[in-house]
Design a protein around this nucleic acid. Structure first.
Lengths: 244, 244
DNA sequence: CGGATGCTTGATGTATCTCAAGACGTGTGG
DNA sequence: CCACACGTCTTGAGATACATCAAGCATCCG
Protein backbone atom coordinates (compact mmCIF):
# COMPACT_ATOMS: atom_id res chain seq x y z
CA UNK A 1 0.00 0.00 0.00
CA UNK A 2 1.45 3.35 -0.98
CA UNK A 3 2.45 5.92 1.58
CA UNK A 4 0.31 8.51 -0.09
CA UNK A 5 -2.81 7.45 -1.88
CA UNK A 6 -3.90 9.33 -4.94
CA UNK A 7 -7.33 9.08 -6.36
CA UNK A 8 -9.27 10.01 -9.43
CA UNK A 9 -8.07 12.83 -11.61
CA UNK A 10 -6.25 14.63 -8.82
CA UNK A 11 -2.75 13.63 -9.98
CA UNK A 12 -3.57 14.65 -13.54
CA UNK A 13 -4.91 17.98 -12.38
CA UNK A 14 -1.80 18.72 -10.34
CA UNK A 15 0.39 17.68 -13.23
CA UNK A 16 -1.24 19.97 -15.75
CA UNK A 17 -1.24 22.79 -13.25
CA UNK A 18 2.56 22.69 -13.34
CA UNK A 19 2.37 23.82 -16.94
CA UNK A 20 -0.26 26.55 -16.76
CA UNK A 21 -2.64 28.04 -14.20
CA UNK A 22 -5.83 26.00 -13.95
CA UNK A 23 -9.13 26.85 -12.35
CA UNK A 24 -11.84 24.97 -10.54
CA UNK A 25 -13.79 24.76 -13.78
CA UNK A 26 -10.90 22.82 -15.27
CA UNK A 27 -10.98 20.38 -12.40
CA UNK A 28 -14.69 19.89 -12.88
CA UNK A 29 -14.22 19.31 -16.59
CA UNK A 30 -11.49 16.75 -15.99
CA UNK A 31 -13.71 15.07 -13.41
CA UNK A 32 -15.87 13.89 -16.31
CA UNK A 33 -13.09 11.45 -17.08
CA UNK A 34 -13.84 9.74 -13.78
CA UNK A 35 -17.22 8.54 -14.97
CA UNK A 36 -15.74 5.71 -17.02
CA UNK A 37 -15.13 2.23 -15.64
CA UNK A 38 -12.21 1.73 -13.27
CA UNK A 39 -10.07 -1.13 -14.57
CA UNK A 40 -7.52 -3.21 -12.74
CA UNK A 41 -4.42 -5.01 -13.89
CA UNK A 42 -2.19 -7.12 -11.73
CA UNK A 43 1.54 -6.77 -11.33
CA UNK A 44 3.59 -8.23 -14.17
CA UNK A 45 0.66 -8.34 -16.57
CA UNK A 46 0.37 -6.67 -19.94
CA UNK A 47 -2.14 -3.89 -20.40
CA UNK A 48 -1.60 -3.72 -24.15
CA UNK A 49 0.70 -5.42 -26.61
CA UNK A 50 2.68 -4.00 -29.49
CA UNK A 51 0.65 -4.20 -32.68
CA UNK A 52 -2.68 -3.76 -30.96
CA UNK A 53 -5.00 -0.98 -31.91
CA UNK A 54 -6.51 0.45 -28.74
CA UNK A 55 -9.85 2.23 -28.98
CA UNK A 56 -9.81 3.71 -25.50
CA UNK A 57 -7.47 6.07 -23.71
CA UNK A 58 -6.12 4.81 -20.43
CA UNK A 59 -5.47 7.17 -17.55
CA UNK A 60 -3.46 5.71 -14.71
CA UNK A 61 -4.99 6.24 -11.26
CA UNK A 62 -2.69 4.26 -9.00
CA UNK A 63 0.29 1.96 -9.32
CA UNK A 64 3.13 2.07 -11.80
CA UNK A 65 3.13 0.92 -15.41
CA UNK A 66 5.64 1.19 -18.23
CA UNK A 67 6.10 1.38 -21.94
CA UNK A 68 8.46 -1.31 -23.13
CA UNK A 69 9.75 -2.77 -26.35
CA UNK A 70 11.11 -6.23 -26.81
CA UNK A 71 13.14 -8.15 -29.35
CA UNK A 72 12.29 -11.55 -30.83
CA UNK A 73 14.92 -13.21 -28.65
CA UNK A 74 13.47 -11.90 -25.41
CA UNK A 75 15.66 -8.91 -24.65
CA UNK A 76 13.50 -6.16 -23.27
CA UNK A 77 13.87 -2.43 -22.78
CA UNK A 78 11.63 -0.27 -20.65
CA UNK A 79 11.39 3.02 -22.53
CA UNK A 80 9.30 4.96 -20.05
CA UNK A 81 7.45 4.82 -16.76
CA UNK A 82 3.79 5.70 -16.34
CA UNK A 83 2.98 7.23 -12.98
CA UNK A 84 -0.45 8.12 -11.60
CA UNK A 85 -1.88 10.95 -13.70
CA UNK A 86 -0.24 9.77 -16.92
CA UNK A 87 -2.14 8.80 -20.05
CA UNK A 88 -0.94 5.62 -21.71
CA UNK A 89 -2.43 5.93 -25.18
CA UNK A 90 -3.02 9.55 -25.96
CA UNK A 91 -1.58 9.09 -29.44
CA UNK A 92 -4.37 6.86 -30.68
CA UNK A 93 -5.83 10.03 -32.13
CA UNK A 94 -3.17 9.97 -34.79
CA UNK A 95 -1.43 6.62 -34.89
CA UNK A 96 -3.32 3.39 -35.14
CA UNK A 97 -1.20 0.39 -34.15
CA UNK A 98 0.93 0.50 -31.03
CA UNK A 99 4.65 0.29 -31.72
CA UNK A 100 5.37 -0.73 -28.12
CA UNK A 101 3.73 -2.63 -25.30
CA UNK A 102 2.29 -1.35 -22.05
CA UNK A 103 2.89 -3.38 -18.94
CA UNK A 104 1.78 -3.07 -15.34
CA UNK A 105 4.77 -3.10 -13.01
CA UNK A 106 2.67 -3.18 -9.88
CA UNK A 107 -1.02 -3.73 -9.40
CA UNK A 108 -2.61 -0.75 -11.13
CA UNK A 109 -5.97 0.96 -11.42
CA UNK A 110 -6.88 3.05 -14.45
CA UNK A 111 -9.80 4.63 -16.23
CA UNK A 112 -10.76 3.55 -19.69
CA UNK A 113 -11.84 6.70 -21.43
CA UNK A 114 -13.82 6.82 -24.65
CA UNK A 115 -12.54 9.20 -27.29
CA UNK A 116 -15.86 11.06 -27.26
CA UNK A 117 -15.68 11.50 -23.51
CA UNK A 118 -12.23 12.94 -23.93
CA UNK A 119 -13.42 15.22 -26.69
CA UNK A 120 -16.17 16.56 -24.44
CA UNK A 121 -13.60 17.64 -21.88
CA UNK A 122 -11.57 19.48 -24.50
CA UNK A 123 -14.69 21.11 -25.88
CA UNK A 124 -15.66 22.32 -22.43
CA UNK A 125 -12.19 23.72 -21.61
CA UNK A 126 -10.21 24.08 -24.84
CA UNK A 127 -7.00 25.27 -23.21
CA UNK A 128 -6.69 21.86 -21.55
CA UNK A 129 -5.70 20.52 -24.96
CA UNK A 130 -2.67 22.73 -24.86
CA UNK A 131 -1.73 21.45 -21.41
CA UNK A 132 -2.15 17.86 -22.57
CA UNK A 133 -0.04 18.41 -25.66
CA UNK A 134 2.54 20.02 -23.42
CA UNK A 135 2.61 16.90 -21.32
CA UNK A 136 3.08 14.76 -24.42
CA UNK A 137 6.04 16.85 -25.52
CA UNK A 138 7.56 16.55 -22.08
CA UNK A 139 7.25 12.79 -22.49
CA UNK A 140 9.23 13.06 -25.70
CA UNK A 141 11.82 15.20 -23.94
CA UNK A 142 12.14 12.57 -21.24
CA UNK A 143 12.83 9.96 -23.91
CA UNK A 144 15.64 12.12 -25.23
CA UNK A 145 17.10 12.51 -21.77
CA UNK A 146 17.00 8.74 -21.32
CA UNK A 147 18.86 8.35 -24.59
CA UNK A 148 21.55 10.63 -23.22
CA UNK A 149 21.62 8.62 -20.01
CA UNK A 150 21.90 5.20 -21.56
CA UNK A 151 24.27 6.38 -24.26
CA UNK A 152 26.65 8.44 -22.16
CA UNK A 153 26.10 8.33 -18.43
CA UNK A 154 27.77 5.71 -16.23
CA UNK A 155 25.50 3.26 -14.40
CA UNK A 156 25.74 5.28 -11.19
CA UNK A 157 24.97 8.53 -12.97
CA UNK A 158 22.16 6.87 -14.88
CA UNK A 159 20.45 5.50 -11.81
CA UNK A 160 20.93 8.75 -9.91
CA UNK A 161 19.44 10.70 -12.76
CA UNK A 162 16.45 8.39 -12.91
CA UNK A 163 15.82 8.73 -9.18
CA UNK A 164 15.89 12.52 -9.37
CA UNK A 165 13.57 12.49 -12.37
CA UNK A 166 11.11 10.21 -10.60
CA UNK A 167 11.31 12.41 -7.54
CA UNK A 168 10.30 15.51 -9.50
CA UNK A 169 7.60 13.71 -11.41
CA UNK A 170 6.13 12.18 -8.28
CA UNK A 171 6.31 15.47 -6.46
CA UNK A 172 4.36 17.08 -9.31
CA UNK A 173 1.49 14.69 -8.73
CA UNK A 174 1.69 14.88 -4.96
CA UNK A 175 3.25 11.47 -4.39
CA UNK A 176 6.53 12.46 -2.79
CA UNK A 177 7.02 13.43 0.83
CA UNK A 178 10.07 15.54 1.54
CA UNK A 179 12.79 13.85 -0.45
CA UNK A 180 11.39 10.36 -0.22
CA UNK A 181 8.89 8.40 -2.20
CA UNK A 182 7.40 4.99 -2.70
CA UNK A 183 9.43 3.03 -5.24
CA UNK A 184 7.22 0.02 -5.84
CA UNK A 185 9.25 -1.55 -8.65
CA UNK A 186 12.02 -4.13 -8.50
CA UNK A 187 15.73 -3.76 -9.21
CA UNK A 188 15.11 -5.83 -12.30
CA UNK A 189 12.79 -3.12 -13.60
CA UNK A 190 15.43 -0.51 -12.89
CA UNK A 191 17.91 -2.66 -14.82
CA UNK A 192 15.56 -3.02 -17.78
CA UNK A 193 14.99 0.72 -17.88
CA UNK A 194 18.68 1.53 -17.72
CA UNK A 195 19.99 -1.07 -20.14
CA UNK A 196 21.98 -2.90 -17.46
CA UNK A 197 22.01 -6.45 -16.20
CA UNK A 198 20.24 -7.17 -12.94
CA UNK A 199 23.50 -8.07 -11.21
CA UNK A 200 25.15 -4.85 -12.18
CA UNK A 201 22.11 -2.81 -11.23
CA UNK A 202 22.18 -4.40 -7.80
CA UNK A 203 25.81 -3.45 -7.37
CA UNK A 204 25.07 0.05 -8.53
CA UNK A 205 22.28 0.42 -5.98
CA UNK A 206 24.64 -0.72 -3.27
CA UNK A 207 27.32 1.70 -4.41
CA UNK A 208 24.78 4.48 -4.24
CA UNK A 209 23.89 3.48 -0.71
CA UNK A 210 27.54 3.25 0.25
CA UNK A 211 28.14 6.75 -1.13
CA UNK A 212 25.43 8.01 1.17
CA UNK A 213 23.34 9.28 -1.71
CA UNK A 214 20.19 7.29 -1.05
CA UNK A 215 18.52 4.98 1.38
CA UNK A 216 16.40 2.25 -0.09
CA UNK A 217 14.57 -0.51 1.68
CA UNK A 218 11.07 -1.91 1.83
CA UNK A 219 10.20 -0.17 -1.39
CA UNK A 220 10.87 3.21 0.16
CA UNK A 221 13.42 5.46 -1.43
CA UNK A 222 14.90 8.40 0.41
CA UNK A 223 17.24 10.77 -1.37
CA UNK A 224 19.70 11.68 1.35
CA UNK A 225 21.37 14.59 -0.41
CA UNK A 226 19.40 15.86 -3.36
CA UNK A 227 21.89 18.50 -4.42
CA UNK A 228 24.76 16.06 -4.39
CA UNK A 229 22.75 13.45 -6.29
CA UNK A 230 21.86 16.04 -8.91
CA UNK A 231 25.49 17.02 -9.23
CA UNK A 232 26.70 13.44 -9.46
CA UNK A 233 24.18 12.55 -12.13
CA UNK A 234 24.46 15.88 -13.94
CA UNK A 235 20.78 16.54 -13.59
CA UNK A 236 19.34 19.62 -15.27
CA UNK A 237 15.61 19.94 -14.86
CA UNK A 238 15.02 22.02 -17.98
CA UNK A 239 13.78 19.00 -19.93
CA UNK A 240 10.79 18.60 -17.63
CA UNK A 241 9.51 22.00 -18.75
CA UNK A 242 7.67 22.84 -15.57
CA UNK A 243 6.58 26.43 -15.37
CA UNK A 244 6.52 26.32 -11.61
CA UNK B 1 27.47 16.79 -53.72
CA UNK B 2 24.57 14.40 -53.17
CA UNK B 3 23.68 11.76 -55.67
CA UNK B 4 20.13 12.98 -55.75
CA UNK B 5 19.41 16.60 -55.13
CA UNK B 6 16.25 17.55 -53.34
CA UNK B 7 14.85 21.02 -53.41
CA UNK B 8 12.19 23.07 -51.74
CA UNK B 9 9.28 21.41 -50.08
CA UNK B 10 9.38 18.34 -52.27
CA UNK B 11 10.88 16.05 -49.60
CA UNK B 12 8.32 17.26 -47.06
CA UNK B 13 5.49 16.69 -49.49
CA UNK B 14 6.63 13.14 -50.22
CA UNK B 15 7.05 12.45 -46.54
CA UNK B 16 3.58 13.54 -45.58
CA UNK B 17 2.14 11.66 -48.52
CA UNK B 18 3.37 8.43 -46.90
CA UNK B 19 0.91 9.05 -44.11
CA UNK B 20 -2.20 10.11 -46.03
CA UNK B 21 -3.21 10.85 -49.62
CA UNK B 22 -2.35 14.41 -50.56
CA UNK B 23 -3.46 16.48 -53.52
CA UNK B 24 -1.94 19.16 -55.68
CA UNK B 25 -3.66 21.77 -53.57
CA UNK B 26 -1.69 20.51 -50.59
CA UNK B 27 1.53 20.88 -52.49
CA UNK B 28 0.62 24.42 -53.42
CA UNK B 29 -0.22 25.23 -49.82
CA UNK B 30 3.09 23.82 -48.61
CA UNK B 31 4.86 25.79 -51.31
CA UNK B 32 4.06 28.91 -49.31
CA UNK B 33 6.73 27.79 -46.89
CA UNK B 34 9.28 28.30 -49.64
CA UNK B 35 8.80 32.02 -49.63
CA UNK B 36 10.87 32.52 -46.49
CA UNK B 37 14.62 33.14 -46.56
CA UNK B 38 16.88 30.21 -47.35
CA UNK B 39 19.49 29.93 -44.62
CA UNK B 40 22.82 28.16 -44.67
CA UNK B 41 24.89 26.55 -41.96
CA UNK B 42 28.25 24.97 -42.42
CA UNK B 43 29.26 21.51 -41.39
CA UNK B 44 30.03 21.11 -37.68
CA UNK B 45 28.26 24.31 -36.72
CA UNK B 46 25.40 24.73 -34.29
CA UNK B 47 22.04 25.83 -35.61
CA UNK B 48 20.58 26.27 -32.14
CA UNK B 49 21.79 25.65 -28.62
CA UNK B 50 20.05 24.09 -25.66
CA UNK B 51 18.32 26.78 -23.62
CA UNK B 52 17.57 29.02 -26.58
CA UNK B 53 14.07 30.05 -27.38
CA UNK B 54 13.61 29.92 -31.15
CA UNK B 55 10.95 32.07 -32.72
CA UNK B 56 11.08 30.50 -36.15
CA UNK B 57 10.46 26.99 -37.42
CA UNK B 58 13.29 25.50 -39.44
CA UNK B 59 12.58 23.17 -42.33
CA UNK B 60 15.59 21.32 -43.65
CA UNK B 61 16.03 21.49 -47.42
CA UNK B 62 19.35 19.79 -48.00
CA UNK B 63 22.14 18.27 -45.92
CA UNK B 64 21.95 16.43 -42.62
CA UNK B 65 21.51 17.88 -39.15
CA UNK B 66 20.94 16.35 -35.74
CA UNK B 67 19.46 16.84 -32.34
CA UNK B 68 22.02 16.28 -29.65
CA UNK B 69 22.41 16.63 -25.93
CA UNK B 70 25.64 17.06 -24.09
CA UNK B 71 26.91 16.82 -20.54
CA UNK B 72 29.00 19.41 -18.69
CA UNK B 73 32.11 17.29 -19.12
CA UNK B 74 31.81 17.13 -22.89
CA UNK B 75 30.23 13.75 -23.47
CA UNK B 76 27.73 14.07 -26.25
CA UNK B 77 24.84 11.99 -27.53
CA UNK B 78 23.11 12.45 -30.86
CA UNK B 79 19.45 11.72 -30.15
CA UNK B 80 18.10 12.04 -33.67
CA UNK B 81 18.94 12.82 -37.26
CA UNK B 82 17.22 15.49 -39.32
CA UNK B 83 16.98 14.64 -43.00
CA UNK B 84 15.69 16.88 -45.81
CA UNK B 85 11.98 17.43 -45.28
CA UNK B 86 12.23 17.37 -41.49
CA UNK B 87 11.23 20.24 -39.22
CA UNK B 88 13.70 21.03 -36.47
CA UNK B 89 11.57 23.06 -34.07
CA UNK B 90 7.96 22.23 -34.59
CA UNK B 91 7.42 22.09 -30.84
CA UNK B 92 8.00 25.79 -30.27
CA UNK B 93 4.21 26.06 -30.40
CA UNK B 94 4.05 24.49 -26.99
CA UNK B 95 7.45 24.47 -25.34
CA UNK B 96 9.54 27.56 -25.02
CA UNK B 97 13.19 26.77 -24.27
CA UNK B 98 14.99 24.07 -26.19
CA UNK B 99 16.05 21.13 -24.03
CA UNK B 100 18.58 20.01 -26.65
CA UNK B 101 20.84 21.49 -29.29
CA UNK B 102 20.56 21.33 -33.05
CA UNK B 103 23.74 20.87 -35.03
CA UNK B 104 24.56 20.77 -38.73
CA UNK B 105 26.43 17.57 -39.56
CA UNK B 106 27.09 18.61 -43.15
CA UNK B 107 26.61 21.90 -44.89
CA UNK B 108 22.85 22.45 -44.77
CA UNK B 109 20.22 24.67 -46.29
CA UNK B 110 16.95 25.35 -44.54
CA UNK B 111 13.97 27.66 -44.55
CA UNK B 112 13.22 29.85 -41.59
CA UNK B 113 9.48 29.89 -41.32
CA UNK B 114 7.49 32.40 -39.32
CA UNK B 115 4.78 30.96 -37.11
CA UNK B 116 2.16 33.00 -38.94
CA UNK B 117 3.32 31.69 -42.28
CA UNK B 118 2.97 28.20 -40.90
CA UNK B 119 -0.45 28.97 -39.55
CA UNK B 120 -1.57 30.15 -42.98
CA UNK B 121 -0.69 26.82 -44.50
CA UNK B 122 -2.69 24.95 -41.87
CA UNK B 123 -5.63 27.30 -42.33
CA UNK B 124 -5.58 26.71 -46.06
CA UNK B 125 -5.40 22.91 -45.78
CA UNK B 126 -6.39 21.90 -42.24
CA UNK B 127 -5.76 18.18 -42.71
CA UNK B 128 -2.06 18.94 -43.15
CA UNK B 129 -1.95 19.55 -39.42
CA UNK B 130 -2.86 15.94 -38.87
CA UNK B 131 -0.10 14.80 -41.20
CA UNK B 132 2.41 17.01 -39.41
CA UNK B 133 1.35 15.77 -36.00
CA UNK B 134 1.66 12.26 -37.36
CA UNK B 135 5.21 13.00 -38.35
CA UNK B 136 5.96 14.33 -34.89
CA UNK B 137 4.64 11.16 -33.29
CA UNK B 138 6.75 9.08 -35.62
CA UNK B 139 9.74 11.07 -34.41
CA UNK B 140 8.84 10.11 -30.86
CA UNK B 141 8.50 6.47 -31.95
CA UNK B 142 11.95 6.62 -33.50
CA UNK B 143 13.35 7.87 -30.20
CA UNK B 144 11.83 4.85 -28.48
CA UNK B 145 13.31 2.52 -31.04
CA UNK B 146 16.73 4.10 -30.49
CA UNK B 147 16.34 3.52 -26.78
CA UNK B 148 15.75 -0.15 -27.51
CA UNK B 149 18.78 -0.18 -29.79
CA UNK B 150 21.20 1.45 -27.41
CA UNK B 151 19.85 -0.37 -24.40
CA UNK B 152 19.64 -3.87 -25.83
CA UNK B 153 21.07 -4.32 -29.30
CA UNK B 154 24.71 -5.23 -29.89
CA UNK B 155 26.85 -2.70 -31.75
CA UNK B 156 26.46 -4.61 -35.02
CA UNK B 157 22.70 -4.88 -34.60
CA UNK B 158 22.50 -1.23 -33.63
CA UNK B 159 24.37 0.02 -36.65
CA UNK B 160 22.47 -2.29 -38.97
CA UNK B 161 19.19 -1.10 -37.55
CA UNK B 162 20.19 2.52 -38.01
CA UNK B 163 21.18 1.93 -41.63
CA UNK B 164 17.86 0.29 -42.43
CA UNK B 165 15.98 3.10 -40.70
CA UNK B 166 17.88 5.72 -42.64
CA UNK B 167 17.26 3.80 -45.83
CA UNK B 168 13.50 3.84 -45.31
CA UNK B 169 13.44 7.46 -44.24
CA UNK B 170 15.54 8.58 -47.18
CA UNK B 171 13.47 6.51 -49.58
CA UNK B 172 10.38 8.24 -48.25
CA UNK B 173 11.77 11.61 -49.29
CA UNK B 174 13.16 10.37 -52.58
CA UNK B 175 16.81 10.34 -51.54
CA UNK B 176 17.60 6.65 -51.92
CA UNK B 177 18.35 4.86 -55.16
CA UNK B 178 17.74 1.12 -55.13
CA UNK B 179 19.28 0.02 -51.85
CA UNK B 180 21.95 2.67 -51.70
CA UNK B 181 22.09 6.20 -50.44
CA UNK B 182 24.35 9.10 -49.72
CA UNK B 183 25.68 8.88 -46.16
CA UNK B 184 27.36 12.25 -45.72
CA UNK B 185 28.21 11.90 -42.04
CA UNK B 186 31.36 10.58 -40.38
CA UNK B 187 31.92 7.42 -38.39
CA UNK B 188 32.30 9.66 -35.39
CA UNK B 189 28.72 10.82 -35.86
CA UNK B 190 27.58 7.23 -36.11
CA UNK B 191 29.45 6.53 -32.89
CA UNK B 192 27.85 9.49 -31.10
CA UNK B 193 24.41 8.40 -32.23
CA UNK B 194 24.92 4.82 -31.10
CA UNK B 195 26.60 5.45 -27.78
CA UNK B 196 29.87 3.82 -28.87
CA UNK B 197 33.47 4.98 -29.05
CA UNK B 198 34.82 5.97 -32.44
CA UNK B 199 37.28 3.10 -32.46
CA UNK B 200 34.63 0.53 -31.75
CA UNK B 201 32.30 2.02 -34.31
CA UNK B 202 35.03 1.76 -36.90
CA UNK B 203 35.52 -1.91 -36.10
CA UNK B 204 31.81 -2.48 -36.28
CA UNK B 205 31.62 -0.89 -39.72
CA UNK B 206 34.41 -3.15 -40.87
CA UNK B 207 32.73 -6.21 -39.45
CA UNK B 208 29.59 -5.28 -41.32
CA UNK B 209 31.56 -5.01 -44.52
CA UNK B 210 33.26 -8.33 -43.85
CA UNK B 211 29.90 -9.96 -43.31
CA UNK B 212 28.88 -8.79 -46.74
CA UNK B 213 25.98 -6.77 -45.36
CA UNK B 214 27.00 -3.37 -46.67
CA UNK B 215 29.43 -1.57 -48.88
CA UNK B 216 30.54 1.84 -47.71
CA UNK B 217 33.06 4.13 -49.29
CA UNK B 218 33.24 7.71 -50.47
CA UNK B 219 30.20 8.57 -48.39
CA UNK B 220 28.09 6.13 -50.40
CA UNK B 221 26.32 3.36 -48.55
CA UNK B 222 24.96 0.33 -50.35
CA UNK B 223 22.95 -2.24 -48.45
CA UNK B 224 24.01 -5.47 -50.11
CA UNK B 225 21.32 -7.71 -48.67
CA UNK B 226 18.44 -5.77 -47.17
CA UNK B 227 16.51 -8.79 -45.95
CA UNK B 228 19.52 -10.20 -44.18
CA UNK B 229 20.40 -6.84 -42.65
CA UNK B 230 16.86 -6.52 -41.37
CA UNK B 231 17.01 -10.00 -39.90
CA UNK B 232 20.39 -9.42 -38.29
CA UNK B 233 19.31 -6.15 -36.70
CA UNK B 234 15.82 -7.36 -35.88
CA UNK B 235 14.23 -4.55 -37.82
CA UNK B 236 10.47 -4.21 -37.72
CA UNK B 237 9.18 -1.23 -39.66
CA UNK B 238 5.97 -0.81 -37.69
CA UNK B 239 7.42 2.08 -35.68
CA UNK B 240 7.75 4.24 -38.79
CA UNK B 241 3.96 4.17 -39.19
CA UNK B 242 3.96 4.56 -42.95
CA UNK B 243 0.59 3.90 -44.50
CA UNK B 244 2.17 3.01 -47.80
C1' DC C 1 54.15 22.67 -47.96
C1' DG C 2 51.61 22.20 -43.29
C1' DG C 3 47.46 21.63 -40.83
C1' DA C 4 42.87 19.75 -40.40
C1' DT C 5 39.84 15.93 -40.89
C1' DG C 6 38.68 11.25 -41.18
C1' DC C 7 39.78 6.31 -41.28
C1' DT C 8 42.43 2.50 -39.55
C1' DT C 9 45.17 -0.53 -36.49
C1' DG C 10 47.50 -2.32 -32.19
C1' DA C 11 48.03 -2.82 -27.28
C1' DT C 12 46.21 -2.63 -22.77
C1' DG C 13 42.95 -2.15 -19.02
C1' DT C 14 38.56 -2.45 -17.12
C1' DA C 15 33.63 -2.18 -16.88
C1' DT C 16 30.05 -4.99 -17.49
C1' DC C 17 27.87 -9.45 -18.56
C1' DT C 18 27.02 -14.23 -17.67
C1' DC C 19 26.63 -18.15 -14.95
C1' DA C 20 25.84 -20.04 -10.53
C1' DA C 21 24.41 -20.27 -5.96
C1' DG C 22 22.49 -18.96 -1.54
C1' DA C 23 19.45 -16.28 1.74
C1' DC C 24 15.21 -14.38 2.82
C1' DG C 25 10.24 -13.54 2.82
C1' DT C 26 5.64 -14.72 1.22
C1' DG C 27 2.02 -17.28 -0.29
C1' DT C 28 -0.02 -21.93 -1.21
C1' DG C 29 -1.45 -26.57 -1.22
C1' DG C 30 -1.06 -31.03 0.98
C1' DC D 1 1.50 -26.78 10.13
C1' DC D 2 5.01 -28.00 7.19
C1' DA D 3 6.96 -28.36 2.53
C1' DC D 4 7.64 -26.18 -1.36
C1' DA D 5 7.57 -22.86 -5.11
C1' DC D 6 8.33 -18.25 -6.32
C1' DG D 7 10.06 -13.64 -6.41
C1' DT D 8 13.60 -10.68 -4.95
C1' DC D 9 18.02 -9.34 -3.36
C1' DT D 10 22.73 -10.55 -2.86
C1' DT D 11 27.48 -12.35 -3.63
C1' DG D 12 31.44 -14.67 -6.09
C1' DA D 13 34.12 -16.15 -10.09
C1' DG D 14 35.29 -15.99 -14.74
C1' DA D 15 34.92 -14.38 -19.49
C1' DT D 16 34.65 -10.73 -22.82
C1' DA D 17 33.08 -6.72 -24.99
C1' DC D 18 34.12 -2.26 -25.09
C1' DA D 19 36.82 2.01 -23.89
C1' DT D 20 41.07 4.31 -23.85
C1' DC D 21 45.51 5.62 -25.39
C1' DA D 22 48.60 6.04 -29.08
C1' DA D 23 50.19 6.13 -33.62
C1' DG D 24 50.20 6.00 -38.72
C1' DC D 25 48.21 6.98 -43.16
C1' DA D 26 45.33 9.25 -46.73
C1' DT D 27 42.98 13.08 -48.51
C1' DC D 28 41.87 17.65 -48.98
C1' DC D 29 42.72 22.53 -48.81
C1' DG D 30 44.65 26.93 -48.07
Amino acid sequence: MPTLTAAGIEPLFRLLARYMPLEEADRRALAKLETGPVCHAEARSDIAREGENPTVIRLLISGWACRYKDLPDGRRQIVGFFLPGDFCDLNIYILSALDHSIGALTAVRYYEIQPQQFQDVIDARPHLLRALLWHEMVSAAIQREWLLSIGQRSPLERLGHLFVELYYRLKAVGLATGTGFDLPITQNHLAEANGLSLVHMNRTVQEMRREGLIELSDRQLRIVDLDRLKRVSMFNDNYLHFNR
